[in-house]
Design a protein around this nucleic acid. Structure first.
Lengths: 216, 216
DNA sequence: ATGTCTTTGTTAAAAAATTAAACAAGTTTT
DNA sequence: AAAACTTGTTTAATTTTTTAACAAAGACAT
């Protein structure tokens, strides 16, 4: 085991990827794997894998390697995806709709317990078996249900006011799909950004940088 | 100006964010800004801003700072969002539908010229004014239209075969929404991943790490 | 015009993260 | 019982990223 020194962000960001590869191996019926073999498969070094895992404890065995199912479970525990935190979604437009139906929240530590919108045409419709609620009911809902995470799928211009309100209602984390920057805005509130526009621009840069693409 | 040494990925990833903040300032009618003031607004250091920009050239003036409109345009040029690369979307399910309608491709260097699916129920429907085409037509379409980027919104299990095929048809970049890892698979092909599942798990980790959340 | 103030571009230093190497100790295999 | 593996851990080296520092140059005020 390790002392609980702060684990660096890059390490954390790699955990879901380990988890994915281990799941795949598990489903393939593979029982054990060495850091060496996993490193080849994932395109990193055995040293890094061992060092990453060692931030959380010793899950392997000398001469044997790692038991895939065990390591898979351990990483799940580290990530906390066994617990279920309550999540609500704010904004049920195209994007919200897709996120709500596309993701397996239950496998990733969350229960999506409510979807809110303020568009009369959307309120009352069903998304993934859940009825879209009126944003006007948000406050009461939060007081009784006490959700922990809010998924923001609203236009950037409404992000700030909604986020402020939600933090006031006890929200401790945001999955932020808006272009608005929520980081550094609240103390003790987690923010995970999915800036699709930024991502697309990054791709644009890469494309225009490729040697081939030199048609002025 | 700078010699065109390789610019690091973190710098590139920050460019869209600069672009966003400058756009906002521009729309507010602000004409100029210093690295110091921008750093406060964005939550980073003035030093980092100056160094980031200096990778591409000197856009500011001593004693004055940066002209916002000029810097905004320059960053746009660096990112290449003035040109328009042709993009196609593979997979028009919930997620594909949302991405196709939600993003302003034109403002980010792309033209979405085709949407493909192999589901008979989806083929022929309209998404954002575009008719969803049959995947069977993909090859012919690519030969005549020569798209550069493919947006993958298909299940992970079909990612590999589709990507291989698309690279064969001349695709030079992927915007990858599948869980499948495309990195290191092709030479000279750009890959920008949007791993929503990984992102959600990272948030899960953060939430369960928060001091408050200690109910075992 | 002159002097002060600001702020850049750039260089140098510091910090952080990654990679690599090495090895005792325990496991598996032969 | 010996040989071959492979981990957890330490240490060092390398690379990358961030921060600090400052001369030089333009802006601004008087």
């Amino acid at each position: 085991m390790k002392n609980n020194a702060q684990v660096s962000v890059p390490v954390i960001k790699r955990l879901p990827r380990y988890h994915r590869y281990l799941e795949e191996l598990k489903n393939m019926g593979v029982v054990r794997i060495s850091s060496k073999e996993l490193s080849i498969r994932m395109g990193l070094t055995a040293s890094q894998i061992r060092q990453d895992l060692n931030c959380f404890g010793g899950f392997g065995q000398q001469g044997y390697g790692y038991n895939i199912e065990q390591l898979y479970n351990e990483i799940g525990i580290i990530l906390g995806i066994n617990k279920r935190s309550k999540a609500i979604m704010i904004g049920a437009g195209n994007l919200g709709h897709a996120i709500a139906t596309h993701l397996h929240f239950e496998n990733r530590g969350f229960d999506l317990i409510g979807i809110f919108d303020n568009n009369k045409n959307v309120i009352g419709t069903e998304i993934g078996g859940k009825t879209v609620l009126d944003s006007a009911e948000l406050e009461e809902f939060c007081k009784t249900e006490k959700p922990v995470v809010a998924i923001l799928c609203i236009p950037a211009e409404y992000a700030a006011e909604n986020a402020d309100k939600l933090v006031g209602l006890g929200i401790k984390g945001f999955w932020n799909f808006t272009q608005y920057d929520l980081m550094h805005r609240y103390e003790g509130v987690a923010v995970e950004n999915v800036h699709l526009g930024d991502s697309l621009m990054t791709l644009c840069y890469q494309i225009n940088k490729l040697p081939d693409n030199n048609e002025v």
